[in-house]
């Protein structure tokens, strides 16, 4: 008998292709989100993130490829299992907040009474009970964002899709939302987070995928991705001759960057091969130049993002030429 040794992902996109009249929005994109995790969906503007998110929400359909929710093909009924906070979000300006929240919850399949009870709890938790009978036009942007967040999660969705959830919040409220997101994950929800805020990706995301120009160019566990980018890379500051530095150790490493800080004073970044031992490399260097500092390179998600997108665009430009 076939035994599953891996957990079924809560969400899986397989070879999604979506084209509009004259451009490709998604080109064979596959991602997989394990249960109870926070998944960072990253990419520059216009990369195709929103297209993918709209396909998951069944606002549009892919040209080919399939979406699985808990191993099941995406169907209309899954709408009630998904909570979606779009980047372009708003509320009915003239409608009372309480009524509006109940209406949105009902559209997600909740009964009126259930919606009211649940909403009251959240309004108390966020200390906004007094807003129930106010209209949205009387609220500030940050206040409206809170309501939108509540209406996204009110029906306890198993899969939450949050597109730039922190935009429009002050640092205090952004933190409140961040904690709320992590609590939701700890309580069993799976979250897809699309954001340009790389700091928050490092902080709360377990997995990530980077989409650029409609293709997925990077993906995996956030820790592993970071590790792979800084693996065997070191920054060395030294005084001495560049030629003697280059000849100090013969083979087994390569220089990635070099910068002359002043005369006979350099900062270089090197990458060691698998076989090269760090200590041996260092020993060789110490005989040739005066080492001032020696550090392991740790790229931030922000640097990885910029590096990958730049490189990807460069290679594409070359191949296009």
């Amino acid at each position: 008998m076939f035994v599953m040794n891996e957990v079924t992902p809560v969400f899986e996109a397989r070879n999604i292709v979506k084209t509009y009249a004259n451009h490709i929005a998604l080109d064979n994109v596959s991602i997989s989100v394990p249960p109870q995790s926070i998944f960072g969906l990253l990419g520059p503007n216009g990369a195709g993130k929103t297209s993918l998110i709209r396909i998951i929400n069944q606002i549009t359909a892919p040209d080919s490829g399939e979406i699985l929710i808990n191993g099941e093909k995406l169907k209309r009924k899954h709408i009630e299992d998904i909570g979606y906070l779009p980047e372009e979000r708003g509320l009915y300006k003239k409608m009372k907040i309480g009524e509006q929240a109940i209406y949105l919850a009902q559209l997600k399949g909740m009964s009126r009474n259930e919606a009211r009870t649940e909403l009251k709890k959240w309004f108390i938790k966020f200390e906004i009970e007094s807003w129930w009978n106010k209209k949205v036009e009387d609220l500030s942007k940050g206040m409206a964002q809170k309501i939108q967040f509540i209406t996204t999660i009110i029906h306890r969705p198993k899969l939450l899709i949050l597109d730039e959830p922190f935009s429009g919040f002050d640092p205090i409220n952004a933190n409140l939302i961040k904690n709320e997101i992590m609590e939701l994950r700890d309580n069993g929800a799976t979250i897809i987070l699309s954001t340009h805020n790389m700091e928050s990706v490092e902080e709360i995301c377990d997995d990530m995928a980077l989409i650029n120009k409609s293709k997925k160019i990077l993906g995996g566990k956030v820790k592993e991705v970071k590790e792979s980018f800084s693996k065997n890379q070191y920054k060395i500051e030294f005084k001495g001759n560049m030629v003697s530095f280059a000849n100090a150790v013969w083979g087994g490493w390569e220089m990635i960057e070099k910068e002359e800080l002043s005369k006979n004073h350099f900062m270089v970044q090197v990458k060691l091969n698998e076989k090269m031992e760090l200590n041996n490399f260092l020993k060789g260097l110490l005989d040739a130049v005066e080492v001032i500092s020696f550090n392991k390179v740790a790229l931030s998600m922000n640097e990885i993002f910029i590096k990958m997108v730049k490189e990807n665009s460069d290679t594409q430009n070359v191949s296009e030429k």
Binding site: P86, R89, L91, L104
Partner: peptide
């Protein structure tokens, strides 16, 4: 109104 207030995307994710 629905389009310019940007509520429409939330609603079309439900209906």
């Amino acid at each position: 109104e629905e389009k310019s207030s940007r509520i429409v995307e939330v609603i079309v994710s439900s209906v």
